[in-house]
């Protein structure tokens, strides 16, 4: 992320860097560059099962953060028949084995992948408990920024690159 780049310059005056960091507060709010996002979100239902199909694209800053040990927690909020349920998945890089691990603590689900693409592919097929209610289903998928490492939470409020949010999508009752 640009903020880290701004502070990496060795040998520069610390006072100057302090000013630079202050300026970065403003710049981060309107940070440019390639932005990721949850570009698609679909729901597949059938045979008493439901699966959330996503198209997730990570911005380079997030990819870099992931490879440097920043866990990414994705949160799914499912509202069906007035009932609201949450589940989240954590994507983390394991440097010892050079693997990416996708974990869903609530379901004791944990799988390792040799590449980020494989891990994201697994993330994009997100099995959900079949809603008991067959009516309207609203789903929102987002990166849970509150579970980011502490120093990153506040800048992430201003940095759009860390804003992965599908918005609330609603599917009508099946015909």
């Amino acid at each position: 992320m640009p903020c880290s780049n701004a502070s990496d310059g060795a040998g520069g005056g610390r006072v100057a860097r302090a000013g630079t960091v202050l300026a970065a507060v403003v710049l981060a709010a309107c940070a440019g560059g390639e932005r990721g996002g949850i570009e698609q979100a679909g729901l597949q239902r059938g045979d008493g099962r439901a699966e959330l199909v996503l198209a997730v694209r990570l911005a380079p800053a997030l990819r870099e953060g992931l490879e440097r040990g920043v866990p990414l927690n994705f949160l799914v909020e499912v509202t069906a028949g007035g009932e609201r349920r949450e589940s989240h998945r954590e994507l983390r890089y394991l440097p010892l084995t050079r693997q990416y691990r996708l974990r869903e603590p609530g379901l004791d689900y944990s799988r390792s992948f040799a590449s980020a693409a494989a891990a994201l592919a697994a993330l994009e097929r997100w099995p959900l408990p079949a809603p008991a209610h067959e009516g309207t289903v609203s789903i929102r998928v987002r990166l849970d920024r509150t579970r980011l490492p502490a120093p990153l939470v506040l800048p992430a409020v201003f940095d759009r690159r860390w804003r992965l949010d599908s918005g609330t999508r609603t599917w009508p009752a099946p015909a």
Partner: peptide, 28 residues
């Protein structure tokens, strides 16, 4: 432990800018 230490260190290195930014933001 080695993996955790390395991961934390790399993470902190990555978060160095964000850490400074947070400090500057809050203290400012």
């Amino acid at each position: 432990r080695i993996e955790a230490a390395s991961a934390d260190y790399r993470q902190l290195e990555f978060l160095r800018g964000a850490l400074k930014l947070s400090m500057a933001l809050v203290l400012g």
